[in-house]
Amino acid sequence: MDGLEILIFLFLLILGYFSGTYFEKRHYKSIRERERKTLHVPMVTFGAKQSLPEAQDAQLFVGSVVISVDYFKMISATLRNLVGGRVMVYESLLDRGRREALLRMKEEAMAWGANQIMNVRLETAAIGGRSGNNSGPGSVEVIAYGTGIR
């Protein structure tokens, strides 16, 4: 019985590692491509404390994404918890989430015809992923919002 449990654990670990790495690579590739494509529209985090820009129209745009850890990342972060230090597996997770959320907001704003996005704010929330297991962030939600002007 114990042997079986260890086998399942190893299987999940390997599955998590390979699928997680695959999804992450594919995601980063798509993020980089879309970031290049949307580079010409500036996004700024200021806007509230300076004079308003010249524009005809302004509208709120929100982009959000929920991104999940994989089994390998979870175990690796649990081990990291014992010794402390940088949890690199989660860093890339949140980086992907932020960039994806920003891109979604930007793409929506560009479809509307925005030539600039002002006062962009980012918000992160941990969502308890696995029911009955409260250790670590099961998944994180990232939202990006800002005002598109045209």
């Binding site: 699928s19 997680g20 995601h27 999940s68 994989d70 089994y71 969502i127 992923g129 029911s131």
Partner: peptide
């Protein structure tokens, strides 16, 4: 979602 928690990636439903 808990299945997706094993393999990683975006949780579209959420």
């Amino acid at each position: 979602a808990s299945l997706k928690n094993l393999v990683g990636g975006e949780l579209k439903a959420y």
